[in-house]
Amino acid sequence: MEFRLLGTVCVDTLTGPLPLGPAKRRSLLAALLLRANTPVSMARLTDCLWDDDPPLHARTVIQGHVSRLRVLLTGADAEAYGVELATLGDAYVLRAPETLLDSQRFEELLMLAREQRSPADSVLMLKEALSLWQGPALTGTYASAPLQAAAQALEESRLATVEQLARAYAVLGEHHRAAAVLRAEADAHPMRESLAAALMTALYRSGRQSEALDRFHRTRRMLADELGIDPGRELADAYAQILRGDPEPVDARPPGYPAQGRPGAGRRP
Rank of each mutant, 00 (worst) to 15 (best):
G135Y: 11
P231F: 10
C10G: 06
L203N: 01
L159N: 01
A184T: 14
S194C: 08
T99N: 07
R192Q: 13
M1A: 00
L182C: 11
L109R: 02
L101P: 09
D53I: 07
A137S: 09
E193P: 05
Q164I: 04
L182H: 06
P55W: 03
S27V: 03
A252P: 06
T60K: 14
L154G: 00
A202S: 12
W50K: 06
A166V: 14
I229G: 00
S103T: 12
L165P: 11
S194P: 05
A91L: 13
D47A: 15
G173Y: 05
V40K: 02
A198R: 06
Q148S: 13
R59V: 14
G266N: 01
L20S: 05
L18M: 11
I242P: 03
M222S: 10
Q148D: 13
L154T: 00
A197N: 12
L5H: 03
D90N: 15
L69S: 09
D121K: 08
A129G: 10
L159W: 02
A149G: 09
Y142D: 11
A197I: 07
R59I: 12
A137I: 02
A212Y: 03
P55N: 04
P249K: 06
A150N: 01
L56K: 11
Q148E: 15
A238E: 02
P255G: 09
A168Q: 13
V66T: 10
G266Q: 03
L34M: 04
A160T: 09
R205E: 14
S131G: 10
P54G: 02
A179H: 01
D246P: 04
S27P: 12
A86Q: 14
P54D: 07
A166D: 11
R158K: 04
R183G: 03
E211P: 05
S27R: 10
A149L: 12
K24Y: 13
S103E: 15
Q164E: 15
P19K: 03
S157L: 11
T201K: 02
E185H: 05
E211C: 09
L213H: 04
L73W: 02
D187C: 06
L88C: 12
E2D: 14
V71C: 08
Q148C: 11
L154S: 04
G173C: 12
L49A: 13
D246I: 01
A58Q: 06
I62Q: 05
A224C: 00
H175V: 00
A179E: 02
A113K: 00
V83K: 05
L223Y: 04
D77N: 09
D246A: 14
G228S: 02
E234K: 08
I62M: 05
L94P: 10
A36K: 06
G75C: 09
R205S: 12
V123Y: 08
A151Q: 02
A78I: 00
A170E: 13
R105G: 14
S157M: 04
V71T: 09
R233E: 14
G16P: 10
N37L: 01
